[in-house]
Computed example of a mutant assay.
Amino acid sequence: MKLVYRQHAIRRMFERNINTDDVTAALTTGNEIEKYPNDTPYPSCLWLGYSGSRPLHIVFADNTEDDERIVITAYEPDSAQWLPDFTKRARV
């Protein structure tokens, strides 16, 4: 499946010092932690993966018709907003 980066993702990755190798590593090592089935034009999900020891959350959607995985955004989860394993949001 080909990775396609939305302009928003590229901008945010640059701001957050996340590169395409980081995203690839995180997508290879991680798991889906939330589903967004009502997103359009394709259902998306939140993925937790790691680039080395760095946790990353990636939001992506799969366009299976064109064999594309569309990266919407990527960020390092904030420990104040997530439980220690970064799979569930902390209750505030």
Rank of each mutant, 00 (worst) to 15 (best):
A26D: 05
R69D: 02
I18D: 09
L48P: 13
R6S: 15
D39N: 15
T24E: 14
Y42F: 14
R91C: 05
F14E: 14
Y50M: 09
L48I: 11
L46F: 08
F14I: 08
Y75K: 01
H8Q: 09
K2W: 03
I72F: 04
A74F: 12
Q81N: 09
D39E: 14
T64M: 09
K35I: 11
S44Q: 03
T29P: 13
C45F: 11
K88Y: 13
N17P: 08
Q81I: 00
I33D: 02
K2G: 02
P77Y: 10
W82N: 07
A61F: 00
A26L: 06
L3K: 03
Y42M: 04
I33G: 05
L3P: 12
Q81S: 09
E15S: 14
T20F: 02
V4H: 10
R91T: 12
I10R: 14
W82T: 07
P55K: 11
M13H: 15
T73Q: 07
E32V: 06
G30P: 10
E34D: 06
Y42Q: 02
C45D: 12
F60M: 04
L56H: 08
L83A: 02
M1N: 09
E15A: 15
Q81M: 11
T29L: 10
S53K: 13
E15C: 13
P37R: 11
F86S: 02
T29S: 15
G49I: 11
K35A: 12
D67T: 01
D62L: 09
F60V: 00
V59F: 00
P37E: 07
N19L: 06
R12F: 02
L56A: 03
E34I: 01
Q7D: 15
A90V: 00
E76F: 01
I70E: 14
R69I: 04
L27R: 05
D66W: 01
L48F: 06
L48G: 07
I58L: 11
H57R: 00
N31Y: 07
L48K: 01
P84T: 07
T40F: 13
D67Y: 00
G52N: 03
A26Y: 03
S79W: 08
T73K: 00
D22A: 03
R69C: 05
A9Y: 03
N31P: 00
